[in-house]
């Protein structure tokens, strides 16, 4: 099924000790927004890292765009057309804004026109091209991280809590940007704590608890459920 962007099948894995992921499965097919919610420590970030080969997978398989990428090197996964914005440390602090974007476009050599499109999506970055990323505000940094990831023109974008630690006004702004990204034909798989706001803009939602997918449904159906908060808290 090569039109599936990402297929995660019964993945087990973790950081050396006991497995954190205990049989997680999910699928992203085509340019849709899929939101993962779940309690702290459920393994959401670990799942994202495992897709990018940064966490050892001990069982199950992950494939993307028709390639098996289980335990693949991260740079080769990027080459396959996936991009990833980690939850923390998602920009290169000593590089300038412009250089961060260059690094995002590392695989594409130089594509000035595309970089201009990114600056058009995130206009606040355009004023700060020569500023070091380490000196940006939290919101700008998050924008830069997304811009960096979009530079390789991915088919699928993984976002780990893009709105964490942002002011409420910025949360909506950021989530709207993610809608724009989808409109470019990019699939988005994102972990989000602001479940309601995220699901409102998503196509599907996934509830992850203790290393497994507990529930999966259309975003609208999930939003409509009165027991969403309990699901979210892992009750």
């Amino acid at each position: 099924m090569s039109d599936d962007l990402l297929v995660i099948d019964n993945v087990h894995g973790g950081y050396g000790g006991a497995d954190i992921l205990t049989g997680a499965s999910l699928r992203v097919s085509g340019p849709e927004i899929v939101v993962i919610v779940g309690p702290n420590g459920a393994g959401k970030s670990t799942l994202m890292k495992s897709i990018f080969g940064l966490v050892q997978i001990r069982g199950g398989t992950i494939s993307a765009l028709g390639h098996d990428i289980t335990n693949q090197r991260a740079d080769l996964i990027a080459k396959a057309g996936l991009a990833y914005v980690p939850q923390e440390r998602n920009v290169f602090p000593s590089l300038t804004v412009d250089e961060n974007l260059d690094m995002g476009g590392y695989l594409k050599k130089s594509d000035a026109a595309h970089k201009d499109r990114i600056y058009a999506i995130f206009p606040q970055l355009a004023n700060r091209k020569t500023q070091r990323a380490g000196s940006l505000s939290g919101g700008e940094r998050q924008m830069l991280a997304m811009g960096r990831a979009l530079m390789i023109e991915p088919k699928l974008l993984l976002l780990d809590e893009p709105t964490a630690a942002l002011a409420p006004k910025l949360v909506d702004e950021t989530l709207d940007k993610i809608g724009e990204i989808k409109a470019l034909g990019v699939g988005v798989l994102m972990v989000e704590q602001n479940a309601k706001q995220a699901l409102a803009r998503a196509d599907r939602g996934i509830v992850m608890v203790m290393g497994k997918v507990r529930m999966e449904d259309d975003a609208a159906n999930l939003l409509a459920r009165p027991d969403l908060p309990e699901l979210f808290l892992g009750g």
């Binding site: 940064l54 920009v91 290169f92 590392y106």
Partner: peptide
Amino acid sequence: DDPDLARVSGV
């Protein structure tokens, strides 16, 4: 700066 993020960027 950050080896993992460099890898993720395709380096």
